[in-house]
Design a protein around this nucleic acid. Structure first.
Lengths: 337, 337
DNA sequence: GTGAGCACTCGGTAGGCTTGAGTGCCAGCC
DNA sequence: GGCTGGCACTCAAGCCTACCGAGTGCTCAC
């Protein structure tokens, strides 16, 4: 634990660095409100903070910048719980008052909203499949040789898979799609998607050319892969966030891998964190990034996460506030339906 | 029309610049195979090419770089119709042999494939709604106050809208969803999505609390907005493609606007272009970009487009080849189902 | 029309100098 | 003991200069 003055100094360094991106020197800190000692004293304390691992010097005779531990201490102990400014709060309110339509579109729009609030990229994961239950199963013929299996889950997600109908099945398909659909409905309604692998063919196969086996194969194939969707807004902000092009590239590359992003967010939440800084994210390309996350709840159940991904020198107070507001508003909106 | 030698010179400049990004001087051109004259002669021709608008000088005493017109001439008359190298061709083949599952996932994966082939961002638009016909309509209750309307189109797309059930409807919903669904099916099956606005309530409303009016309102609201989906892969490539961060930001920002991207691709194709360079795209942020597109067809009908978005100094031959191969393969794959 | 030669331009690089922000340390003061 | 002023030191950044080299346009001879 740091004494008051060192804490003030650390806070000043972090906040100054966050909004200038320039290493901050003892002079600046000494002249900041909240620090009432001379620059020499500040220097001494900064030397201590450095040897304690909270600050670092890019090179001798430059100011200090916060280390990962410095940011961590700042978020844990020093960052004021700011609330959103009036304009932003208003923006959020009116967004959720006016948004409508389909879940996916809404989540995508929400990610853009959040991105706009924080000036960073924003990430929203949709409800996970695992907890959802099958509400409806339908088999629709698209062409003589292709059918589409549409499964509606209780969380509002719609999973679909094309089902190729091979020779025999194709012939019989026209008549049998209904039957096959009914059979599947019977087997799947009310069950978890995870259980799909256990679907079986009807004990008495009504006809040799039934599409049921093909459908079952398709179901099995489609059940495993991730499934969880993720909506990312404000990727353009990434471009301005980092000095090195290579970093930008890596971050964008990571954001393209939906599965990775989903597990990243889940991991962070599972570890009970609101904020993950640098290596705490567990992803090498995010060494210079920080992630601020919050779950959102529908009817009391956490069903997804909203998050913000920016450079380590992001405005944590602002991000925390934005993420908090958006997650609760989003949850409320979804609960209301 | 340029004479042979000037054409060769232009070609050399373009190709050299494409893969070094450095202005190319008369010396380089003169020593290139295919140009058998001295650098002095090249200089004379280059001066002509410049005054004709095909080349430009970043500053006196630098080499020349192609102008937009230069690239255009190159693409139209000089770019050899390269085919993909063996490895890439193999990669495409095995991708389409092994890909499976759901349309959306497949298109997203395809965009990543294309991006990998060309080293640029890749864009794929899905089948447009307009031409599609409703194949199935289903109304599924999610909770007492929310239902989900799922519409399956003949092109395999699935459109969904949540339908809030207000007080009265909520009470009656349980029993009436089936009825309402049937009514909608009757009205919508086989019709274009565009026609949805004309849906009417049943002449004889079966009960006061029928959800039908709410559903109809939801349908009307959901029909207008874009709807067409677009899949973008390789956004990380954008980061490396341009010198200026600001350009990167603008391009990424544009790519986030799905509607804009869709219309962009459509526009280009409508104008009968395969390649749109710089201002030809009609989008200011793409002044330094080029777009290579090709439609893909399912059962002989063009249903979507695949495209590649890179800097004007991209490898057009490679991009054209990749786009061509991917579009035909994709079409074939989708036709087979 | 082609090519060798020449004078000229000008961006980029390298070295040297100065400036200024910043540091560490020390000695004195409260 | 803790704080401060002072001092010597470091080092990135900016600036100037010189120089090199790639490139050009032009001219003149073939």
């Amino acid at each position: 634990m740091l004494d008051d003055r060192k804490a003030s100094i650390l806070r000043t360094v972090v906040e100054e660095y966050i909004h200038t991106a320039v290493p901050v020197g003892s002079g600046h800190v000494a002249s900041a409100p909240g620090v009432a000692v001379s620059s020499a004293t500040v220097r001494n304390d900064m030397a201590t903070l450095e040897s304690d691992g909270y600050l670092a010097q890019p090179h001798t005779s430059a100011g200090r910048i916060p280390t990962q531990a410095g940011y961590r201490y700042y978020v844990d102990n020093l960052a004021g719980r700011a609330s959103l400014d009036r304009a932003s709060a208003q923006q959020v309110r009116s967004f959720f008052d006016h948004t409508h339509g389909e879940l996916e579109r809404m989540l995508a729009d929400t990610s853009r909203l959040l991105s706009g609030l924080t000036g960073t990229a924003a990430v929203i994961t949709g409800p996970p499949q695992e907890t959802a239950v099958v509400r409806s199963v339908q088999l629709v013929g698209l062409s003589p040789r292709v059918a589409l299996l549409v499964i509606v889950l209780s969380n509002g997600a719609v999973e679909k898979t094309t089902v190729p109908l091979d020779g025999d099945a194709a012939l019989a398909a026209e008549v049998d799609l209904m039957g096959a659909g009914a059979h599947l409905s019977e087997q799947l309604l009310g069950r978890h998607l995870d259980d799909l692998a256990t679907v079986t063919a009807p004990s008495v196969d009504p006809s040799a050319g039934s599409p049921v086996p093909a459908v079952i194969a398709a179901v099995r194939a489609s059940v495993a892969p991730d499934g969880d969707h993720v909506y990312i807004g404000g990727t353009d902000r990434v471009a301005g966030a980092f000095e090195a092009v290579e970093t930008v590239r890596q971050v964008l590359g990571l954001l393209e891998q939906q599965l990775v992003v989903v597990t990243l967010l889940r991991d962070v939440l599972d570890r009970g964190l609101q904020v993950a800084i640098g290596s705490e994210t567990g992803m090498a390309p995010l060494a210079e990034c920080a992630l601020v996350v919050a779950p959102y709840e529908v009817e009391g159940e956490p069903v997804g996460t909203v998050g913000v991904l920016g450079p380590t020198r992001m405005d944590y107070a602002q991000a925390l506030a934005a993420v908090a507001v958006v997650s609760t508003r989003l949850g409320r909106r979804l609960t209301e339906g």
